[in-house]
Design a protein around this nucleic acid. Structure first.
Length: 207
DNA sequence: CGTTCGATGCACT
DNA sequence: GTGCATCGAACGT
């Protein structure tokens, strides 16, 4: 079932934790693609220096101040779109960044989108690499600027609870940021092969 | 194995 | 003009 507005209208850390194991679905003319969320990060309020709300309200971060359960998509590094789910009551700027998915539906279409326009061969993309990393998963799912402010509780871009079990969870510092690294606001499905990050060295999962 | 660095566009100072 | 919530190729050890 599709997650309700009330699901998102809660403290951001609780939403981030509960999003692990849910399914991000995007329906487009080319077909349906989806994946189980295995990695996410919380960005909480104007007091969080890494949150886009840190400078106060601006045109770009307006979705963070709006109602929960809405997508906040923005363009970064000149080439990547990143997708968030807005959390907390309206007026309280916070969101959860979706960082990695385990592909479920539409894997061939995802591979096509990942490799189109690049020199890479689709066959060289492992299943767990297709949606590993926030920029990679938006590319694979066909998420771009037109999905900014999309309602995640109905429509083409939604998040569903399908009763999947992501296994044990762990909290770590957020990655890829230069400020606000003191908070352990990144949550992952421990040991899942689709999780991003530098420590993917071989061997069993570390708790 | 590890680290560095270029690509590439825009919001904000 | 500066600095990104990134990615992956290229390079060094």
């Amino acid at each position: 079932m599709i997650l309700s507005r009330d699901f998102y209208d809660r403290p951001t850390l609780a939403v981030a934790r509960d999003l692990i194991g849910t399914v991000l679905v995007h329906d487009t003319a080319a077909g349906r693609v989806s994946g189980m969320i295995v990695e996410a990060e919380a960005y909480i309020g104007e007091g969080d220096p890494a949150c886009h709300a840190a400078p106060g309200p601006t045109p770009r971060n307006a979705p963070l101040y709006g109602p929960p359960g809405v997508a906040y998509v923005y363009f970064n590094y000149g080439m990547h779109y990143l997708v968030n789910a807005v959390t907390e009551p309206q007026g309280s700027p916070a969101a959860v960044l979706i960082r990695a998915l385990a592909p479920l539906e539409g894997l061939p279409l995802m591979r096509l989108r990942r490799t189109r326009g690049t020199g890479r061969r689709a066959a060289h993309l492992d299943e767990h690499e297709v949606c590993r990393g926030p920029g990679n998963l938006t590319r694979a799912l066909g998420i771009g600027a037109s999905q900014n402010r999309a309602d995640l509780t109905r429509g083409a871009l939604v998040i569903e609870d399908r009763g999947l079990d992501p296994g044990p969870l762990a909290w770590t510092p957020r990655i890829g940021i230069r400020v606000g690294t003191e908070h352990r606001w990144r949550v992952i499905a421990v040991g899942h092969p689709a999780v991003s990050g530098p420590k993917r060295r071989g061997g069993p999962a570390q708790p």
